[in-house]
Amino acid sequence: MSANGKPYIREVSRYRWYFSSPRYLRYMAREVTCVFIGLHALILLVALRRLSEGRDAWEAFLQNLTGPAGVLLQLVILVFAVYHSTSWFNVTPKAMPVQVGENFLPGGVIIGAHYAAWLAVTLAVLFLAGAF
């Protein structure tokens, strides 16, 4: 209670609160990745549809995807997807701490293992898909 009997209430903007600290802004950037992850899932859905419609539909789809607009969209999605991956892996020690005997495995080990697995999965998919 302050002297005049009114409790102090700090003003917090309901719509722009996350601009008040870089921490909040990073949190919001992480949360907003879902828009682009969702967008990519929709692209996968359209890909399945075109694939089910036959060769011509698929090849036209792939042509669109590799046109200027498709490339720009995918580059933006790639940036947000990578941000999702790094922010997801960086909190794994908090999300699933690993206990060994009395102690907990250092966070860096858990994060490092995830990055290594990420690299392995990426190379494996590229290899299996015949990219090299």
């Binding site: 990519h40 996968l44 698929w58 999702h84 991956s85 998919v125 990219a131």
Partner: peptide, 26 residues
């Protein structure tokens, strides 16, 4: 999605630089 979305995007971007992943052939 953390493990595979980046590489899936990469797969469909590769044809732009002249590398056509065999999997993307109809």
């Amino acid at each position: 999605t953390a493990f595979i979305t980046p590489v899936l995007v990469l797969l469909t971007l590769l044809p732009v630089v002249g590398v056509m992943p065999e999997l993307l052939v109809y």
